[in-house]
Amino acid sequence: MKVQIFSDCVKEGKNPEILFWVGCSGSFDERAKKITKAFVKILNDAKIDFAVLGNEESCSGDLAKRSGNEFLFQMQALGNIKVMNSYNIKKIVTACPHCFNTIKNEYPELGGKYEVLHHTEFLKSLIENGKLKIPNGSFKGKRITYHDPCYLGRANNIYEIPREILKKLDAELVEMKSCKSKGLCCGAGGAQMFKEPEKGDVDIKDIRIKQALETKPDIIAAACPFCNTMLSDGLKNKVSENSTSILDISQIIEKAKDL
């Protein structure tokens, strides 16, 4: 797999147009790594000039900030900004809505001003300018339901772009009971992913997966590595419905194009 590292590029006198921000889960989590690879395959297929920060990338700080640790958040942010500014980075794409939100909204006041895109926004622009073609048919007739990640939807008002991409697949897009601005959280946000839930009746992810399964989908489309993990865990508890799979939008495109 061809992936350039920014520091190498700079040594060779190259200045890649786009920084692909991989994020912690995209780098380390088994499921999320698949999303990362799928997205890289698409980027390479579309001949995009991009690079990653590699070992110079550090946690964006979203988790620290939502946990209330403003100090750690700003340490992380300022560190990352220092690296990115040293490479004179202009445009960032990431598959993680949490990194996307933090870098886009919370970095500028700390000195990090970039054009920040979520990978669904970037994929849509690739489709529009003809660099990414999705062949018709491979998902024909499949029922797909899309789960809105909180940090993409309500946090940043991106509801339609992921749906527009899915519509290109010739599939049948079905909506859950709570969708778009009313979408139900998967339960991971606000650092919940890293702690035991407080006492309650059910797990949030189980409510959400139930809503998703009510649409009788072949595929549950996600656009966030954390949602992906949460929903997959929720699905595991429902053994009978194992024909449904949970895929990130980039993985769906990867499959459609057979990359």
Binding site: R66, C150, K182, L184, C185, G187, A188, G189, G190, E198
Partner: peptide, 8 residues
């Protein structure tokens, strides 16, 4: 600590 910061 129970909040997911989901903005709902």
């Amino acid at each position: 600590w129970a909040c997911t910061s989901c903005n709902a």
